[in-house]
């Protein structure tokens, strides 16, 4: 069984970190995992994305044309990746940053007002965690606790005061339901 996730957005939105966290959690769960970023000449405010593949066996291609799931953190990412998602797959949209609805009817779409939720929690930089929480809830490859554990184990000690907020962001994200298209 292989699950492919693309997380895409603007540089600075925590796209790469969210992907790494997913990869750490998968590794700690004993799975095979590959994380690969887009690494062009990037800049703050430019586009950034990463692909995470989680599998029970040796991973072949680290890049996929048809991912199982996508987190689209801005409009360009939604436009680019919505058509590529596997039928039956999952699309998580950061509706705070996107001014249109999804059009696919053969996938599960979750609209998450991630920036608003994050700001309510006290830090808008938590929006990536809110979206990750929504993704995990739909995907079912790992429990949210795996991400919490990964945060605890791999975040430097000096950032541990931020853990409760991050946990809360994951839980808030998981409350968002699939929308009818």
């Amino acid at each position: 069984m292989q699950t492919e996730v693309i997380i895409a957005g603007f540089g600075g939105q925590g796209v790469l970190f969210a992907g790494q966290l997913l990869a750490y959690a998968a590794m700690d769960e004993g799975k095979q995992v590959t994380w690969i970023p887009s690494y062009g000449p990037e800049m703050r405010g430019g586009t950034a994305n990463c692909t995470v593949i989680i599998s029970d066996e040796e991973i072949g291609s680290p890049l996929v044309f048809h991912p199982k799931a996508v987190i689209a953190m801005n409009r360009p990412s939604l436009d680019k990746y919505e058509p590529m998602i596997k039928p039956g797959g999952v699309l998580i949209i950061n509706s705070s940053m996107v001014d249109r609805k999804a059009t696919r009817t053969d996938i599960k779409v979750v609209e998450v007002d991630a920036n608003v939720v994050a700001e309510k929690l006290g830090d808008k930089r938590l929006s990536n965690m809110v979206l990750l929480g929504a993704l995990l809830h739909q995907l079912g490859v790992m429990p949210a606790e795996a991400i919490e554990k990964a945060l605890r184990s791999h975040l430097p000690e000096r950032h541990h005061k931020l853990l409760p907020q991050n946990y809360e962001a994951l839980h808030e994200g998981a409350r968002f339901q699939v929308v009818e298209i």
Binding site: A23, M27, Q32, V33, W35, I36, P37, Y39, I59
Partner: peptide, 10 residues
């Protein structure tokens, strides 16, 4: 190659 250099794996 650049892919192997830039990717993260356990």
């Amino acid at each position: 190659d650049g892919m192997l250099g830039q990717m993260m794996e356990p």
